[in-house]
Amino acid sequence: MDCLEQNGLLKLLQRKSSRQFRYYLDTCSRCGMCSDACHVYRTQGDYKNVPAYRVDVLRRIFKRYFSWGGRLFSFLFGAVDLDDHILEQMYEAAYTCTGCRRCMVFCPFGIDLTSLINIEKALLAFTGSIPEDLDMLTDIAIEKGTVMELYRTVVQEQMSKLEPELQRLTNMPEANIPLRVSGARILYVSLGSKDSILIPAAILNLAGACWSLSEFEASNFGYFIGDTDRARQIAERIVNEAKELGVEEVVIIECGHAYRIMKHLQETWSGQQHPFKVKSVLELWSQYLQEGRIGLKRNRLSSPITYHDPCQLGRNGGIFEEPRWIIRQIANDFGK
């Protein structure tokens, strides 16, 4: 690592060291409670997957360059120089965390270790140490936002091909998959795959919704690589589309990360409030069922059934009741 890159990394680390970051570094006692809470460590048993170990890599660098104690008594604090070797450790640490934030719930101090791991990912992104496929998908998503006109015809053709299947599925000859409907009430954001378009499109048609399918996919690979700037750009494509069409609600497919980004993070990143509401499809389906706009065949599942909250939708997104309510409509024996 050359001097220029090291200086750049240290400046980035300094910029990222918010008050919250400092609280967390000061408070963490490395008591190891997070190890029992981490499903990766519990299944793998490798000390490198202990959440406290994952963020310790970052702490050791921070102590070395930004604390008097670490500068003077590096042996005491385990402070280390920022070099390629420690970045390799950081890579392994950052990309074995799923970002579920279960450790935060069980930490006696409530430390959000994932927020520290996101800083590690941001440092790695600065040096270009990113999983190649994620990096490529991030660039493609951003590029798609800038040249959407080139893709538009292709997307329209693909949707037209899906419509006969949709009409058979709904038994509605007029059922369609609308794109770029100005003044639509709902902008539905799928994952871009057939499954994530066809079934929701069927429900939206059956409910008689005034909707438009987003030209963009909900997934945000920029967030996965901790690059807030690129993650913001990806989410901004959908925000701009929603503003352009003047929709009242942006409805996100089940993808927890996408929902969390649009609902809770994008406004902070961009510094602007959404002029629309953000909902998960689970909230919308639950609303339609309660309003009687769509129906369900009750008691279809007789065997015992349970529901595991997806981390990003539940713990990190706040959606708990709606999926349970929907399951109760079709299951005879639904337990916790």
Binding site: S17, R19, Q20, R22, Y23, H264, R315, N316
Partner: peptide, 29 residues
Amino acid sequence: TLYKADPSLSSGVYPKPPQCKRIYLIARD
């Protein structure tokens, strides 16, 4: 040092407790 650092961008975990219950839960934690 903490005062001079950038204010935190917090995002706690859900479910969010009502305001009246928040202090009790923090104390319990």
